[in-house]
Design a protein around this nucleic acid. Sequence first.
DNA 1: GCAAAAGTGTTGTACGTACACCCATGC
DNA 2: GCATGGGTGTACGTACAACACTTTTGC
Lengths: 228, 228
Amino acid sequence: MYEDSDKERLLLAVDCIVFGFDGEKLKILLIKRGFEPERGKWSLVGGFLKQNEVLQAAAIRILHRYTGLDNIYMEQVGTFSDIDRDPQERTVSTAYYALINIENHSRNLDHQFSAQWFSVEEAPRLIFDHDRMVRHALKRLKVKAETEPIGFELLPEKFTMLQLQKLYEAIYNVSLDKRNFINKVRSLDILEKLDEKDKTSSRKGSFLYRFDADKYHRAERSRLMLNL
Amino acid sequence: MYEDSDKERLLLAVDCIVFGFDGEKLKILLIKRGFEPERGKWSLVGGFLKQNEVLQAAAIRILHRYTGLDNIYMEQVGTFSDIDRDPQERTVSTAYYALINIENHSRNLDHQFSAQWFSVEEAPRLIFDHDRMVRHALKRLKVKAETEPIGFELLPEKFTMLQLQKLYEAIYNVSLDKRNFINKVRSLDILEKLDEKDKTSSRKGSFLYRFDADKYHRAERSRLMLNL
DNA sequence: GCAAAAGTGTTGTACGTACACCCATGC
DNA sequence: GCATGGGTGTACGTACAACACTTTTGC
């Protein structure tokens, strides 16, 4: 295709920024590299694209290898191509971010990879251009979460209003008024209020909610999910 | 890098969605392919990434080859990797969009490529997955133009308020009230009002404005550029 | 009965939206 | 003097932001 005569083939990698939420802070999953180069340093989970594989599939495969998880929300962030980003050989890498429910997940965390959760602000310096990838992913996550109900991917199926609020506070690094927050969320009409209460954090107990995809799709919605 | 053992190299292409504005409609620049496969069909301008080249540089090089232009605003859209997107050989392509001032440009349009402007809605069907790329680019352009002053890239240096309004109407495919529009733009305080008038379209003549990058950077600005 | 978190409503303000008339000029 | 597009201001409604007290329960 195209009319260039020089067709140079090169390595295409995929790196995943895995976001999780522990109830307080937004976290990312990092692995301590057990192989050269940069052995012992922290990095994103990644791998190479195969000849007969689509990028999204590679991202899913890689995420599965490191976390054991399937059916995870993923979104392409961008493609990074600095010449020497990988000192071994010219490698272009496409970054994806994944949103996972940290609670469901911790069990399957495969210890062979020395994977560990870090809060986004306190993460160690990463290899190559992975820090840049994280910054881009975070920016994209913020934009996306403003207009689409993706926050729920980071929470357990059933959650309290306070959990949801803390999640948005963590994503946007702001603090919100709980009355305004709850009113806004209610007005969106995309949650199902359950009869159960979560009593782990108070004597009174707080009601649990569940994201209702049907309600969401039915609703004629204003452009914004949350306006912070 | 990484611990995969199988490293398969493949072709990486770059395709550019070139946006322009003719005063009425948002346009894209397409070329009629003079080479196989798909000779005679319309496509985006594109080329292959070289071994020692960054993606952005490739996009700039390709844009320059087809338009003769330098110093153009470009933004990465995403990377497209369907297995058979190019029937010749597995090729992954990263799309960029460019914003150019259609007036300055028309002169240097190199006729050897049968390049032609099409309004976004009336463009012919494109080869490969280029239609999908255009849709993505358009979506990204809309999001970006909401929060950053990139619209000016599509206008001549000096422009009238009506031109600016028509531009945003074209991008978002809406119609706006000129009084509200002008008030909103004024409140942003990022334009310099010139003493010149453009008298081509009326006897009275309308004042010309220029985007003032300094004002823009100085201003503590609300998150939104235009709220439509 | 008290400590601890959950739950709830009102008011002011800012911003977006709707809307119509006069102005300047060239012919 | 008139036709053409350019330029301007106000009134209303909606939506966000600020704010404090009562309720429920387990101990």
